[in-house]
Structures are given as structure tokens and as C-alpha cells.
Amino acid sequence: MNRKTLLVPFAASALLLAFCGSAAAAENAALKKCMDGANTTADMVNCNAKEAKVQDERLNKAYKTALAAQEGDRKQKLQDVQRLWLKYRDANCAFAGSATGGTIDQVNGSGCLLDMTQTRAQELEDLVGP
């Protein structure tokens, strides 16, 4: 194996880690503090999982509020879109969490789940407004 072949998977995993774990941590003091104290892959995954639970609760609340605000066929369309989004999120993060075959994949996958859930919660909140 040549050096260039070895660098491609490493660069891809570094890019995924930067993409999947940094957005949520940069905006969330509790997550940043948890990640700053994380010494192992399991610690990092646990930090992501803890915050993902918070964001999932936020997502569910935002979804219920947005759904209640819809009228006519828009209610069914939002339900359909949300079901598709959940499938996409899960598939996308499973893909992100299997890029290298190494332990960093666990961090990438859990970070992806967190970031996507947080972003979707914001999208749903924005449907209704403040």
C-alpha cells in the first residue's frame, strides 16, 4: 500500500469527524464541556448520545407544535416529510458511522445523528415561528 492510499481514508475520516461532531459542540456549552473532558471514544459517543437525547426531545416538541399549526393536506404532507426525513437521517448517519471501519466511526455516527436532529428541530421550530 502506498502513502497516498493510506491518506485518503484518514482524510475522509477527519473530514467526517469535523462535519459530524463540530457544529453541535460549537453551539452548545454543555456538549463542549463534556467533549473537552472526554478521553475515550466511548466518552465522546456518550457525550453525543446525551445531547442527542435532549435534541430529540426538542425535535418531538417542535414536530407536534408544527403539526398542530398545519391545516388541510399540509398536515399529512408534514407527516410524510418527517417520516422520510427520519429514514434519511438514520441511513445518512449509518453511512457516516461506517466510513473507516475504525472506532472513530462511532463518534462520527453519533455526531451526525446529533447534528441532523438539532438542525431538523430548528427547521420545525422555524415553521411556526417564535
Results as ranks from 00 to 15, higher is better:
Ala14Phe: 12
Ala26Asn: 03
Met44Pro: 00
Asp90Ser: 13
Leu113Gly: 03
Phe10Asn: 07
Gln55Ser: 09
Leu124Ile: 04
Asp90Val: 08
Gln55Val: 06
Phe19Ile: 12
Phe19Gln: 12
Gly21Gln: 10
Arg89Cys: 09
Ser22Met: 04
Lys77His: 13
Gln82Cys: 05
Ala23Ser: 10
Thr65Phe: 00
Gln70Glu: 03
Gly101Met: 05
Ser13Arg: 04
Lys4Trp: 09
Gly111Glu: 00
Leu16Glu: 12
Ala69Trp: 00
Lys53Arg: 12
Asn60Cys: 10
Thr117Gln: 13
Gln106Cys: 07
Tyr63His: 08
Asp90Glu: 14
Ala26Pro: 02
Asn39Trp: 02
Gln70Tyr: 02
Leu67Pro: 01
Asp80Gln: 13
Lys87Leu: 14
Gly102Phe: 15
Cys20Tyr: 10
Leu67Gly: 00
Arg120Lys: 15
Thr40Glu: 04
Gln106Phe: 15
Ala18Lys: 08
Ala12Val: 08
Ser13Tyr: 11
Pro130Gly: 15
Ala30Thr: 05
Pro9Gln: 02
Ala11Lys: 05
Leu67Ala: 01
Ala121Gly: 10
Thr5Ala: 06
Thr65Trp: 01
Met44Glu: 10
Phe19Glu: 11
Leu59Gln: 11
Asp115His: 13
Thr41His: 03
Asp36Val: 04
Asp36Ala: 05
Thr117Asp: 14
Ala99Gln: 06
Ser98Leu: 09
Asn48Met: 09
Asp105Ser: 14
Ser22Pro: 03
Asp36Thr: 04
Ala96Glu: 04
Val107Ala: 13
Ala121Cys: 11
Leu17Thr: 11
Ala66Asp: 00
Gly97Thr: 06
Leu127Lys: 08
Pro9Gly: 01
Thr119Asp: 15
Lys33Ile: 02
Gly111Asn: 02
Thr119Lys: 13
Met1Arg: 10
Glu51Tyr: 10
Thr100Asn: 13
Gly97Val: 01
Met116Glu: 06
Arg83Cys: 05
Lys4Ser: 02
Arg3Phe: 02
Gln118Tyr: 07
Val81Tyr: 15
Ala66Cys: 00
Tyr88Pro: 09
Lys33Asp: 09
Leu113Val: 07
Cys47Gln: 13
Asn108Ser: 09
Thr100Glu: 07
Val81Pro: 01
Glu125Pro: 03
Met1Phe: 06
Asn2Ile: 03
Lys50Phe: 03
Ala30Gln: 09
Val54Glu: 10
Val8Leu: 05
Leu124Val: 02
Ser98Tyr: 06
Lys50His: 05
Leu114Met: 04
Asp80Asn: 15
Ser13Val: 11
Gly101Trp: 08
Gly109Phe: 02
Arg3Gln: 06
Leu78Phe: 12
Lys61Glu: 12
Asp43Arg: 09
Lys32Leu: 05
Cys93Ser: 04
Asn60Gly: 05
Leu15Trp: 13
Leu16Pro: 04
Met35His: 00
Asp43His: 10
Asn28Gly: 01
Met1Asp: 07
Asp90Arg: 14
Asn92Lys: 14
Leu15Cys: 10
Gly129Asp: 14
Gly129Ile: 09
Leu17Phe: 13
Cys47Gly: 12
Lys33Tyr: 04
Cys34Glu: 01
Ser22Asp: 03
Pro130Arg: 15
Leu127Pro: 00
Ala14Cys: 12
Leu7Val: 01
Phe10Thr: 10
Asn46Ala: 15
Leu17Tyr: 13
Arg74Lys: 12
Thr119Cys: 10
